[in-house]
Every structure is written in C-alpha cells, then in structure tokens.
C-alpha cells in the first residue's frame, strides 16, 4: 500500500475502520503514522472546544425562567431529573431566535444612542477631553433615574424587601457617580477622580447585572 492510497482511506481510518493492510502500512510508514496522530489530536481538540462552547446551565435557566414568565412555555409535567440535556428542552429552538432578537434590539438601541450622542455633541459646549473619553459620563441623571425606576419596578415584583435593598444600593452608587463626575469635571487631569468614575459605573453595571439576572432572585 502506498502513502497516496493510504491517505485516500483516511476518513474511514479515523472512524476506526482499519484492516490488516492499513495496520501494516502504519507500522512501516512514520509519515502516515505521524499524520494519523496529528489528525487525532486535532479531532480531540475540536471536541474539547465544542464542549467549552456549551453555555453554562445558568444561561439556560435564565432563559427558561424568562420564557416561562412570558407564558411561552409551561412547567414541564415530569419527575425531577438531574441531567440537563438538549432533548429535555423542546423550546431550545427559541434560543437562537431570542439571541437574534436581542442582537437586533441591541443594534437599534446602540444606533439610537449614537444618534442622541451626536445630537448632544452638537448642542453642547466642548468638554474637557479627559472627561469626554469616559464611556458612561454622557448618561444624564434623568436618564439614570428613569432606568433606576424601571429596575426597581422589575425587582419589586419579587419582594418589597428586595426593592428596598436595591433602592438603597442605587442611591449609594448614584451618589458615588455624582461625586466622581464633579471631581473629574473640576479637574480633568485628576486620575483618581477618573478612576473613581469608572469604579462607580462598574458598581452600577454590577448592580444592574445582578438585579436583572433572572437566575438570582
């Protein structure tokens, strides 16, 4: 058997379909033997990658809770089972659809935000460069309060205590942002103020993420 003939039957070989002729060629030819080893390593790595791409159960759970809340799915009538599998999720086809919708919604929001920013930039006097580069500093307090109100309404459906706790935390975070913004505006070269502004927005983002994470009540 030549190397060319051997390579023609590689796919079958990799699937385990191997006869004595193949084995004899492999034993005598180091090039083909190395090729088989490499292909097996690549195949194994690809399998590992596929496994890593699988979203965590938390993602599935959040989607399921949201879809159930929307009435799109109902609680399955089954004995509690432990292993989550795609077969157990008849609504799994909705995930890519939901993802596409979310991406579309994100693009619309982004474009609208960009338009608003451009409009604001036209109307506003130029600001100090160091402040202008901060990503969230153009979110006005009124926008923040609207967002906060909606967030508190959302968490308020869980319990009044949860709502109260989030309200207190939001007040803390917004006060932090306000102080950091004032400091950054009064001295655009103040690195500590710039860093604090980023930290304050980081806290705000964290708070929103935790509040809206449906797998956390």
């Amino acid at each position: 058997m030549t190397c060319a003939e051997f390579q023609q039957v590689l796919p079958e070989m990799l699937e385990g379909d191997r006869n004595t002729e193949h084995a004899a060629h492999l034993a005598s030819c180091s090039a083909c033997s190395d090729l088989i080893s490499d292909l097996k390593a690549i195949s194994e790595a690809a399998r590992q990658l596929r496994a890593l791409d699988e979203p965590s159960p938390r993602v599935w759970n959040s989607l399921e809770i949201e879809l159930r809340r929307e009435g799109l799915i109902r609680q399955p009538q089954r004995e509690p089972a432990l292993v989550p599998s795609r077969a157990r999720r008849p609504w799994a086809w909705m995930v890519p659809v939901a993802a596409v919708l979310l991406v579309g919604f994100g693009i619309i929001v982004y474009q609208r935000g960009s338009d608003q920013q451009a409009e604001m930039a036209k109307n506003q006097a130029p600001v100090a460069p160091a402040v202008a580069v901060l990503p969230a500093s153009n979110v006005s307090p009124s926008h923040r309060s609207d967002d906060d109100r909606q967030l508190l309404e959302a968490v308020g459906t869980r319990s009044p205590e949860t709502r109260a706790q989030y309200a207190v935390d939001l007040n803390h975070v917004n006060a932090y942002i306000q102080d950091a913004e004032q400091s950054a505006q009064s001295d655009p070269n103040d690195e500590d103020a710039q860093q604090s502004l980023l930290n304050a927005y980081d806290q705000r983002a964290m708070l929103y993420q935790m509040a809206l994470d449906r797998s956390l009540p």
């Binding site: 496994a51 965590s56 509690p80 989550p84």
Partner: peptide, 23 residues
Amino acid sequence: SDKVEIDKGQSGNRVDLLSHLLD
C-alpha cells in the same frame, strides 16, 4: 425540599451545577 432540583453537567473539563427552582 422538592421545590428545587440540581441541574448538573460535565462538558470536557468543566463541571456545572445549578440550583433549579421549581414553581
């Protein structure tokens, strides 16, 4: 209680556990 179950899974070298709250 039986109002919560555990979803568990292993994908390669990753192990995931999730407390799955029921109605």
